[in-house]
């Protein structure tokens, strides 16, 4: 270490949550599917933030991407088409101590789940959206034809939006459409 003796270093690695703590089962997604990349990056995010696995809840709806919570070593709720957001809302409203994440796709954003999506965004705009935009760390990743946008919101509601690149060529165009 720069300028320090060896005695001054401490190995914390054994006392930290490892990537394996956030893993569960073998994802049954197609080789090369963007979902694999999303899963890995979310697991890394959890590790980097050192979220206790039992304090995190991942809520999803249906479809193959919504198997997501099954592959997380955290609590999870694999629910119904379009209803992930209100279920997550219920969890968070009564258990603010939990870190609540929702993973959802274009169906939840713009089709069967439009109503909750609009409602939740309205809440965010009201309460914290402006602040969130400034402080959120945005991570983008391109895999195949899918663009991942993961907003880490300090109030620990996490959103993962998958959008086909064709529809959302860059983040700048994607974000304002959430208003």
């Amino acid at each position: 270490m720069f300028g320090l003796t060896e005695a001054a270093t401490v190995d914390y690695s054994q006392e930290q949550y490892q990537l394996e703590d956030y893993q569960s089962g073998n994802p049954r997604w197609c080789t090369g599917c963007g979902d694999n990349a999303i899963l890995t990056s979310v697991q890394r995010l959890c590790r980097d933030e050192q979220i206790p696995p039992e304090k995190a809840v991942f809520v999803s709806r249906i479809g193959c991407s919504s198997r997501f919570p099954h592959y997380m070593g955290t609590y999870g709720f694999h629910s119904l088409h379009g209803r992930a957001l209100p279920i997550a809302q219920g969890v968070k409203l009564r258990r603010p101590d939990l870190k609540v994440f929702v993973n959802m796709g274009d169906g939840d954003c713009c089709s069967i789940g439009t109503a909750p999506f609009v409602q939740e965004n309205a809440l965010l705009v009201d309460r914290q959206w402006q602040r969130t935009l400034r402080v959120c760390s945005v991570l983008t990743l391109e895999a195949k034809n899918v663009k991942l946008l993961a907003c880490y919101v300090p109030e620990d509601l996490m959103w993962l939006f998958r959008q086909p690149i064709m529809k959302a060529p860059n983040r700048a165009e994607l974000l304002p459409s959430f208003h």
Partner: peptide, 23 residues
């Protein structure tokens, strides 16, 4: 807490979420 949801379906979903979380 009383939560007025965006519709009947979401109201039920919020209730299920809260129950799942232990309340």
């Amino acid at each position: 807490m009383v939560h007025q949801a965006e519709d009947e379906i979401a109201a039920c979903a919020v209730a299920i979420g809260a129950s799942y979380a232990g309340k």
